[in-house]
Design a protein around this nucleic acid. Structure first.
Lengths: 229, 229
DNA sequence: GCAATGCTTCGATTAGCATCGAAGCATGAT
DNA sequence: ATCATGCTTCGATGCTAATCGAAGCATTGC
């Protein structure tokens, strides 16, 4: 006993419903203010402040002060990965909370996972990149092949800027609805924001859903050689 | 708010120190009795019983009654994956920054993750299989190539028996000490038990460590074309 | 049969912590 | 300056849940 790191400490952090709701809200990838998170969790500002302080001390969220606002976001991709993982188990093992409403279906099709694309389209993208050899997974981790780099540059991704950062370019992230991997890392982030920039998709304001237009989805499938739906 | 599955519910389950210790103990892959888990967690039999009932109701552990003993084990590989994931974050963000005691080093080198090989040797095996093309990761998930099947059969793995089961043959699992993937799934399980069967390694009785003999490690590296240490 | 072992249920105690009201402290707007 | 907004600290309250002792069931062994 007592071997390995203190797992209970951070599990307990996530274990409070108010904090869990805050973290789930931060899975949108957007940085949110303390009051927004308070509203999201359904508690008053004071309790939210206390919760956020604990999340910060526990290393799960990062903060940024801007004027009289304080913005919170998930600390790392790994935290997002953990949360997604938790959702998978909660969806499978917990009672069937998955009442597949219409909004729920949109979430399953495409949603934001921290800051990259998840859901059916996210895993399809990942699979497609793997299939055509744009992505590879070898000893040193995951990376882009030459063909992949060309593809990304042609799509308008500034790879040089991404590479100059310390953050890993490619990571995989387990999808809770699909139970398969999708692409995370700074490239995953850049791709999602590019999808928005070129008008293929936009984020739902109220949820984590990513709404592709009909034409946007067609162009998306075409660009990454995915089967037409 | 309230979208997605109830993440707080199971995080809270793991968030209690006693339960977390029990789960960590079950990461050895062995099925343990209620009293063993009570001792492991440092609580009396009554409280342990209460905790285990909750873990069972929450779907995190499975039970098997045998005589007057009740054996507990982790419910699925996904649960093990989640715990390993949690350890990674706890090790990074929490205090207790890896005081590398002598036993700790053994754990880092090779240990049991649920029921397959983790640690340095586990990730090396995974990387080696990937490098030589025995394993591949494509659209439909992870699988063995023909060369990989030959390799496994030659090593004495009964692939047909594994394939006939419903459980996935190959899965990847994120390693908390190495922060990279190692091989899980029924093949991962079979490999570890084969390592023990042919006398290359044995499990430490008191911890999750897997102890390779000098010759065992050499044969291991030779068999899977890993660089000599 | 009786005793022993392993586990569970019951009841009571306790401690921790989530919660909120109110006040304090910044920063920004008028 | 003065007020408003956003966040934090303080103090008090109340609820949840972890804990254990003791008794209750089940199973095994003699």
């Amino acid at each position: 006993m007592m071997e390995g790191p203190d797992i209970a400490r951070i599990a307990a952090l996530i274990g409070d419903p108010a904090r869990a709701n805050m973290l789930a809200a931060l899975m949108s990838g957007r940085a949110l203010t303390a009051s927004e998170l308070a509203r999201e969790a359904g508690v008053t500002a004071q309790t939210a402040s206390s919760h956020l302080a604990k999340l910060h001390a526990g290393g799960l969220v990062g903060t940024r002060k801007q004027g009289r606002h304080k913005y919170f976001s998930l600390a790392t991709d790994e935290v997002a990965h953990l949360l997604e993982n938790l959702m998978g188990i909660a969806a499978g093992a917990g009672h069937l909370r998955t009442r597949t409403g219409p909004k729920d279906q949109a979430l399953r099709k495409a949603r934001v996972c921290y800051s990259h694309l998840a859901g059916d389209l996210g895993t399809q993208l990942y699979d497609g990149l793997m299939r055509q050899g744009a992505l590879h997974l070898d000893g040193s981790g995951m990376g882009l092949s030459d063909a992949g780099e060309t593809l990304m540059r042609r799509f308008g991704i500034d790879l040089d800027a991404l590479k100059s950062r310390r953050a890993p370019l490619c990571r995989e992230c387990l999808d809770w609805s699909e139970r398969r991997s999708h692409l995370a890392g700074s490239l995953g982030r850049a791709l999602l924001s590019r999808f928005e920039a070129v008008g293929w998709a936009r984020r739902d304001a109220a949820s984590r859903a990513v709404l592709f237009s009909a034409e946007g989805e067609a162009r998306f499938r075409e660009t990454f050689s995915l089967p037409a739906r």
